[in-house]
Simulated assay, not measured.
Amino acid sequence: MSTLLHAITNVTLDLKQLEKTAGIILKQLKELNFDKTSYRNAKGETIKENKDWTYEIEDDPDYPPLNIDFHGSFAIIPTLYEHSTVLFTIYKLSLIYENYRLYWFEDFRENLYKMVKMLGGTEVIFLADNAGTPLCDFLDMAQEDCTYETVKERLIAKFGQPVTDYSQLDYESLDYAEIKEFFLDDFKDLKKLQTYKVSKTL
Rank of each mutant, 00 (worst) to 15 (best):
T79V: 06
F108M: 15
K188P: 00
I8T: 08
Q161R: 10
Y100W: 13
E58Y: 03
F159N: 12
T195H: 14
W53A: 07
T12D: 14
D35R: 12
T122I: 05
Y97M: 12
L80F: 01
L18H: 06
L102H: 11
T201R: 14
Y166M: 10
I76D: 01
I76S: 02
K117H: 04
I25F: 01
M1H: 08
N67D: 10
M118A: 07
Y176K: 11
D165V: 11
S84I: 15
Q194H: 09
E149C: 05
T122R: 11
L174P: 10
K158M: 08
Y103F: 07
Y166S: 11
G72K: 00
K43P: 02
T89M: 03
D170V: 06
G44H: 07
V116L: 04
W104V: 10
D62M: 14
I57V: 09
F34V: 02
K20I: 15
K197N: 12
A75G: 04
D129Y: 02
L93T: 14
F34Q: 14
A157H: 04
Y103H: 13
D14T: 07
Y113M: 13
D14N: 15
A22C: 11
R101D: 15
F105T: 07
L15K: 09
Y55A: 03
T54D: 02
K27G: 05
Q194Y: 01
I179F: 00
E144I: 03
S73F: 00
L190C: 10
T79P: 03
K92E: 15
E149A: 13
K20N: 14
K16C: 06
R40P: 04
Y81R: 12
D185F: 02
T37M: 02
T201V: 11
F34P: 05
D137P: 05
F159S: 12
L193I: 08
K36A: 01
H6I: 01
E98K: 15
L32C: 06
E178W: 00
Q17C: 13
M1K: 08
G160R: 10
P61F: 03
T3Q: 07
K197C: 07
K200R: 14
P162C: 08
F34I: 05
F88K: 13
T3A: 09
M1Q: 08
C146R: 07
E82I: 07
L127Y: 04
V86A: 05
L102T: 10
V124N: 09
L13C: 10
L190K: 12
L26F: 02
L4E: 09
T201W: 04
Y63C: 11
K152W: 01
S173H: 09
Q143P: 04
I57H: 00
Q168D: 14
Y63Q: 13
S84A: 15
I156W: 00
